[in-house]
């Protein structure tokens, strides 16, 4: 219910412009170019270390107070869990979100240009109670923060 409400609020005022841009921007980006850049090996890896190594070049991300992760301590619905990862570090190259107990831990990763703040928020699926890891790559180093999310209803099954 609360999710629906906030979604409605967010959408307010954006409806009018919805179609105009689609035609104009079509063809800017070919699917093959995007698919080629999608890191399949990292998303298919069954361990956090393997996924990080494949995606970011190092298998370990030191725990750091400079990285903050915000997620609910108890998720009523593991299919929709809000996660925020943020940092005030300079030169942030990417922010990634991994779920330790998911069959394939890597959920999401965003490469950020210099003009992007060290902040991402998205919604992910968590199969069962697990640590959720936020990993920031900044100045070539991997730094992380984690939080346990307790799941009462699974988000990855039927």
């Amino acid at each position: 219910m609360s999710i629906d409400t906030s979604r409605r609020l967010m959408l307010k005022g954006t409806l009018a412009a919805s179609m105009a841009g689609v035609a104009a921007a079509a063809g800017l980006l070919t699917p093959t170019a995007v698919l080629a850049a999608w890191p399949k090996a990292a998303f298919d890896d069954k361990s956090i270390g393997g996924a990080l190594s494949s995606l970011l070049g190092s298998s370990s991300a030191a725990n750091s107070g400079d990285v903050k992760i915000k997620a609910p301590s108890i998720a009523e619905n593991g299919a929709i869990v809000n996660v925020v990862v943020k940092t005030k570090l300079a030169d942030v190259e990417s922010i990634s979100i991994l779920v330790e107990k998911n069959a394939t831990p890597l959920a999401f990763s965003a490469d950020l240009a210099k003009s992007a703040a060290g902040f991402v928020k998205t919604r992910i699926k968590i199969g069962k109670t697990s640590e959720v890891l936020g990993v920031v790559k900044a100045g070539g180093k991997l730094l992380s923060a984690k939080q346990v999310v307790k799941v009462t209803v699974g988000g990855c099954g039927g």
């Binding site: 998303f43 394939t104 959920a107 999401f108 003009s115 992910i124 699926k125 988000g155």
Partner: peptide, 13 residues
């Protein structure tokens, strides 16, 4: 200019 290049797996809601 590209400012965000986000990559998603199956665990995005």
């Amino acid at each position: 200019q590209e400012v965000v290049n986000a990559k998603c797996g199956i665990a995005v809601s």
